[in-house]
Write a protein that binds this DNA or RNA. Sequence first.
DNA 1: ATGAAAGCGCTAACAT
DNA 2: ATGTTAGCGCTTTCAT
Lengths: 336, 336
Amino acid sequence: MPVTSKDIAEKLGLSQPTVSRILSGTQGYRASTETRQRVLEAAREMGYRPNAIARSLRGRRTDIVGFHTGYNYMSVRDAYMAAVLGGLQRVCDAKRVDILLLGVFHGRNTDDIYGELVNGRIDGLFLHTSAEDPLVAELAQSALPVVSISDAIPSLPSVVADDTDGIRQTVDYLWSRGHRRIAYIAPERHMISVDRRVETFREEMAKRRVSDATVIHREFTYGDASEDDGNLDETLNTLLALPERPTAACCWNDPCAMHLLRSCAKLGMRAPRDLAVVGFDGSLDQNLMMQTLTTIAVPWDTLATRALEVLRAQIQGGEVPRETIVPVTLLRGETA
Amino acid sequence: MPVTSKDIAEKLGLSQPTVSRILSGTQGYRASTETRQRVLEAAREMGYRPNAIARSLRGRRTDIVGFHTGYNYMSVRDAYMAAVLGGLQRVCDAKRVDILLLGVFHGRNTDDIYGELVNGRIDGLFLHTSAEDPLVAELAQSALPVVSISDAIPSLPSVVADDTDGIRQTVDYLWSRGHRRIAYIAPERHMISVDRRVETFREEMAKRRVSDATVIHREFTYGDASEDDGNLDETLNTLLALPERPTAACCWNDPCAMHLLRSCAKLGMRAPRDLAVVGFDGSLDQNLMMQTLTTIAVPWDTLATRALEVLRAQIQGGEVPRETIVPVTLLRGETA
DNA sequence: ATGAAAGCGCTAACAT
DNA sequence: ATGTTAGCGCTTTCAT
């Protein structure tokens, strides 16, 4: 049986609140030096550990924030997820907040999942899902502080990378390196971030009098799938079959870029000689690649810092910006 | 203000326990059909959500397990950490257990950290640290159920990969491919898993009448460091300078192997032609590599399953094996 | 089948 | 400076 403040109080012939006040460091309470001494010593001796659950029930606060991803095919194993969560982990640690890694709740209905989020265990939620997720509507009218991480959700405060500027930098860079025929490779899945990237890509190309810039939409499994599904092979073939064969490919994220590079390698093509390849996110560990990837690096720690700020502001009852945009930089690697 | 069971009881003129019994599905309680109906409907209407904190205080159970890594330079961003946590996440989700990602508690003392672990928020702990971590001694004599993940800790129940068999398979494989001069690359840091690997390596080589098998100890930063620290370049040079130049290198883990491969590439060497390279863990996503890595694949989902079993057995007060060993397989890639 | 009472361990309000 | 009382929301006796 764990030792409680009551146990200490009984042992010392004090009241339980006195012990609690001393041990929890209540503001504006000055215990007599002797009492304080005795309590602290008894606590140490008896191995007292304050019960966080009781404290939370009383204080309606847990100092725990949740992390939930609605893309149930995504796990922490994905480099992308790992980058996001790694940033949050570091930042939360510094603020003495712990992260409750909520299940993906496979096979459960929205209301059930919502219930798991608002049952008092967390003070706020980092949400990573799509705007269409039915959970979003529930959360939007709920009292639970939420921040959408890394994809913008109109109805929730969001913290996202600067998609527009990232693409601008990419096109600037490729253009300056002499590329004129650039293709954009996007997923089929709908994501606001990706929409913005595609739109900016078209705009930037149009500015340079390329009105029919190539955009290819192809879904592909990424993450920890054990086999390449070959979709990037097909995408590459599509690229190569274009009347005006592109000299550069702008991929919507890093795994997509890596898959494309592998498809190139299979055909004996090498980046950037035969095709320049650029990614987005900077989620992969460059040290583990044979060829470093040119990509738009998202500062995950900064993004996490902003996200936690937005969450805490809400927890403290403040107003927060609808959308916080984090600046990105072009990371020049060996592929473009 | 959230709706409580008391609110529902008052509204319906019932007692609070009755409402609670119906809503929580108390065993062996048969409410009258009418009462049950009214309660369920009121709960739905009023948006009742049971408070998990109150339930936990009462029941001394949270259905949350903690995850703590004492290697404070390691974050979820590391592919290794991501593989471990990804497995746990999947398995815990299936068992309806959530994971509390505890901070690394940077700059806090052991007793403080220990206090964060035994404050009632978690039912058990997945621990990833070294046997020398001072926290281990505290946990060993604590009532908190703990399981050491992926590195054996003598004083705690551990779930680990079969290091011995992994190395046996590796040497078997390399030998069968004609390699006779094989070097093992280990970290300087002390880890029981690595000791076992090195020991087995020496034994396997000795069995084949190679009594002075080469083992090189070199630390290197891995994970999300932004720059290669060059230690593998140096390691490679050491290998190449050996009187009997090895034809194969057995790396203690996958990132080490990848770093070595990069160092090779810098010198224009290619695996397996100029040097066969084998890793250990299978923590990296093969889809994202230009060349797939030959490695010992640890079945992370299985390891996670065993780990959760061991933890739950302890939580339920049962005895558990001191060490659970998970079988591994050689994954034949393109590097050896 | 339901209600009354108790208590999980803590903090806060009020009284002394 | 300390004690008394109350209550966070729930589950578990025990009584009816």
